[in-house]
């Protein structure tokens, strides 16, 4: 076989594999029983009760470096309240001369990047609840999940010789006991609300549709809990963050200021996991392409290695 023939053969095999086997991998669908959380920035008063409760519920140590409060998510802090401040910072939920809070923790992506990239399935998505959880007993510490998370959520404890990844697990140990996540339980205003993703999306849509000043009966804890409070609606951004971003998330955000000001990234609707897996499966579907190339290489190697082998 001439070089040209070989290349043609290999190319043909590649083409056949690409066109035949692997179709582009679409975003994964929202699981029918996916749980969800709605974070309404306009309700958040910045009390950080959720931050404290999260520490208690997950037995996380206090922050000790630099400041006694977390400046961001860290291996010690799975949930953090950050503030957007502009100018005088006096008007709540205003973009200019105002401020707004944002609660950051795992968004529990519908099509999670960390789950897609983890080589050893240490990141798993529960096929019922959709909770994205980390399992240190499998983890090798490659930190690819840290690279691949669009929200910078998984944090590896790099200052510990035997560290591990830490991230919000949606309080799945509490969910198993029939409780709501700790951050939701303590939230005094219902800024963090727990329910099914479907419910949360519907609630978010209802709120976003409110007129400014329209009184609204805001639920706390869950949609059907007895604790509610009346409040006049603020001006909401006409967009629900997490409905479609990166294939959607199970933690949804609504806010009075643009989401990018709150540090939430602008993401395409197609998940990065889908993009990455499409490329990867196009190349490796059933190992057909590598197999074809290997066959060709075996042929030429056998033929050509005879001419100048090492053994004489």
């Amino acid at each position: 076989m001439k070089r040209r023939e070989f290349l043609l053969a290999a190319g043909g095999a590649a083409l056949a594999t690409v066109s035949g086997g692997a179709a582009a991998r679409d975003n994964r669908p929202v699981l029918p029983h996916a749980i969800g959380m709605l974070y309404d920035s306009t309700l958040c008063i910045g009390c950080k009760a959720c931050v404290a409760a999260c520490k208690r519920a997950n037995e996380m140590p206090p922050e000790t470096e630099m400041k006694d409060w977390a400046v961001d998510l860290s291996p010690k802090t799975l949930n953090v309240i950050k503030a957007y401040v502009d100018g005088s910072g006096l008007a709540k939920d205003h973009e200019s001369n105002g401020y707004a809070f944002v609660k950051r923790h795992c968004m529990h992506c519908v099509d999670a990047g960390c789950v897609s990239v983890c080589p050893v399935q240490a990141m798993r998505k529960d096929q019922t609840s959709g909770v994205v959880s980390h399992h240190p007993e499998a983890c090798i510490g490659c930190r690819y999940c840290v690279m691949a998370c669009p929200y910078d959520v998984p944090k590896f404890d790099i200052h510990n010789a035997f560290g591990q990844i830490h991230k919000c697990q949606f309080c799945n140990h509490r969910l198993a006991e029939g409780k709501v996540p700790a951050c939701v339980e303590v939230c005094p205003t219902g800024a963090s609300l727990f329910g099914s993703r479907e419910q949360m999306l519907a609630e978010a849509q209802r709120r976003v549709a409110l007129q400014e000043g329209e009184p609204y009966d805001y639920p706390r804890l869950t949609l059907d809990a007895p604790y509610r409070h009346k409040k006049e609606a603020p001006i909401y951004q006409q967009h629900i963050f997490g409905e479609k971003e990166g294939g959607g998330t199970q933690v949804l955000h609504i806010s009075g200021v643009p989401y990018q000001k709150l540090g939430l990234p602008q993401l395409p609707e197609r998940s990065y996991a889908a993009m990455s897996e499409t490329v990867q499966h196009t190349l490796y579907d059933g190992m057909m392409l590598p197999g074809a190339i290997l066959a060709g290489l075996l042929f030429v190697a056998r033929r050509n290695s005879g001419d100048h082998s090492d053994d004489e």
Partner: peptide, 30 residues
């Protein structure tokens, strides 16, 4: 890659079929 691995003592997990995630580029590389 090994000494950069945060949990190097579990590095062999990548070779255990029941741990492998075939969607992962890292698995392929590893």
């Amino acid at each position: 890659a090994f000494f950069d691995m945060g949990r190097w003592w579990q590095a062999y997990n990548i070779f255990l079929p029941w741990h492998m995630n075939l969607n992962s580029v890292m698995l392929e590389v590893g």
